[in-house]
Amino acid sequence: MTNILLIIFTISLIYLGVANRLKSYIAVISFQGIILFGVAFIELIEINWLNLVLILLETIVFKTIVIPYFLNYIIKKNKITREAEPFLPDFLSVVIITVIILGSFLLSNTINDPKLKKIFFVVALSALFTGLYIIVSRRKIITHVMGFLVIENGVFVLSMAVGNEMPMLVNIGILLDIFASVFLLGIFVNKIGDVLKEGDVEHLSKLKD
């Protein structure tokens, strides 16, 4: 069952390459939250219940509802145009993300470690690099945040792989998740709209040498 969820997770990554609307991105991020909820539930059922509840709450409440809602709110409030505006054509994005997935797959195939749940590793790496790819290939800063959230989801999958033995790490990961995303989004909500004109919200590129 976990395998199916993780495969669906990977498909959602491919979809990120195809999608060109911010709304679809938000939907994907929210959807990934649901999948992670499922994965966490199946994988971590053995750890102590308090921890489990915390993790489940984080995935379902935070990743699936709060953050996507927040993102929507920011887009509305700052009147950000709804297109992702990639530097590269979307077609190339799909190709690159496919290559990323294949690459992570091949990489993990070279590891001979019986303890490793390979599929977690593949999915996590794919999410990680897809997130990075989205950050470098999209023009808007809100899409950078979304790329970061995808990376976070990848990290979550990775922490699942070690979660049974070291639940503390999963918790720290969650801490990171909440901390970083609340902070990133918080600046967006409160400050960017006040200080900058609408047009500037989309690109911050004045500081350079």
């Binding site: 979809y15 390459g17 979307d90 077609f91």
Partner: peptide
């Protein structure tokens, strides 16, 4: 947008 949509099928087939 059609090409990338169609290419997505290849990606899924790879999966």
């Amino acid at each position: 947008h059609n090409p990338q949509y169609i290419f997505m099928l290849t990606s899924i087939s790879l999966l």
